[in-house]
């Protein structure tokens, strides 16, 4: 069995656009145990969405997830927000690519916006197990901040710092200041919007000794607004899917995810990053391929070319 049946025990309003949903086993038994950082699949008819578990496993065998309503939702978050208490949901088993390191002497949790969800569960678990940690929560202040009240009302309060309403450079400075004081061998966990995690990556890279753990937060597959220039690339060999923001090149997006692509000119001239395309239509911006080669669409330059489709599958 790779799925479980769960009943919605409670729905909470955490912010104007964020609902938390508590799930318990439909048969009265506890749901399968998990470690902080895990996520589950939620089946919504033909749609499958992943949500991080934000409670701790040590409580009562329930799961708690949070869903942000995406204005450009293709169905996932809208349908999640339409659910009512008492309804039954088919969910997957917990999976974890973002687990806490068992031997960390100190952990630093850096949350950006709705990226709070896996980190909140981690904070609870670290606290419950008496581990040393600090929790930094960055959010826009023009919205009510999800889980702020909850954090302030619990034992997490003294470990948590809120950074509200900061813009780009101020976020960087705050992160820099916080990272400046952490122990040299601390483990850093971050989840949040792409640009936020990019800054974290850069700052952590500048401090040798720190160990970085990233969770690419997808409340649902990113709303792809092709007119705005974002899309995703799926890497056939590893099965990884990476989102490419409008402001990023494919090479940059892959690098941000820790995947190095050999490049030289990075201007679509030299052909070093020429890559086979297995599916999807590339939007060529290079000057090396001929018109015919561009039309064939079976190869592309990852440094400048983009996508005409929501997803490209690359032979990487």
């Amino acid at each position: 069995m790779t799925t479980q049946s769960a009943i919605i025990r409670r729905i909470g309003v955490e912010a104007a656009d964020i609902r938390s949903i508590e799930l318990v086993g439909a048969d009265g038994k506890p749901l399968r145990p998990f470690e902080a950082g895990a996520h589950i699949d939620v089946y919504l008819g033909e749609l499958i969405r992943q949500y991080s578990l934000i409670n701790t496993t040590d409580t009562d065998g329930s799961y708690r997830i949070a869903v942000k309503l995406e204005p450009t939702s293709r169905g996932g978050s809208r349908r999640m927000h339409a659910l009512a208490e008492g309804e039954t949901l088919k969910i997957g088993l917990p999976r974890n690519n973002f687990a806490l390191h068992p031997d960390a002497t100190h952990s630093v949790l850096l949350a950006g916006g709705i990226g709070i969800t896996p980190l909140l569960g981690m904070a609870y678990q670290l606290h419950a197990r008496g581990k040393s940690f600090s929790f930094e929560y960055f959010a826009r202040s023009d919205d009510p901040v999800a889980f702020a009240q909850e954090i302030r009302a619990t034992a997490l309060a003294p470990r948590t710092r809120f950074h509200l309403g900061l813009t780009g450079e101020a976020v960087r400075q705050a992160l820099e200041t916080r990272l400046h004081t952490v122990p040299r061998n601390a483990h850093v966990y971050t989840c949040g919007p792409g640009p936020f995690m990019q800054v974290v990556r850069e700052l952590v890279a500048a401090k040798p000794g720190l160990v970085l753990h990233l969770e690419y937060f997808v409340a649902e597959p990113p709303p792809l607004d092709l007119t705005a220039g974002s899309f995703q690339v799926k890497l056939a060999k590893s099965g990884t899917t990476i989102r490419v923001d409008a402001s990023q090149t494919i090479v940059e997006a892959l690098r941000a995810a820790g995947i190095e692509v050999e490049t030289s000119c990075e201007q679509g001239v030299c052909g070093t990053c020429l890559t086979t395309v297995l599916a999807g239509r590339p939007d060529h911006h290079d000057v090396i391929l001929t018109e015919e080669e561009q039309k064939a669409g079976d190869r592309m330059l990852l440094c400048v070319s983009r996508s005409l489709d929501a997803e490209l599958v690359l032979d990487l």
Binding site: V269, G271, I288
Partner: peptide, 17 residues
């Protein structure tokens, strides 16, 4: 040696191919 090319090398790269 592999030269590191620039935008201005579009012509040289194409004829060479």
């Amino acid at each position: 040696a592999h030269p590191v090319l620039l935008e201005i090398d579009a012509g040289p790269v194409r004829y060479k191919r």
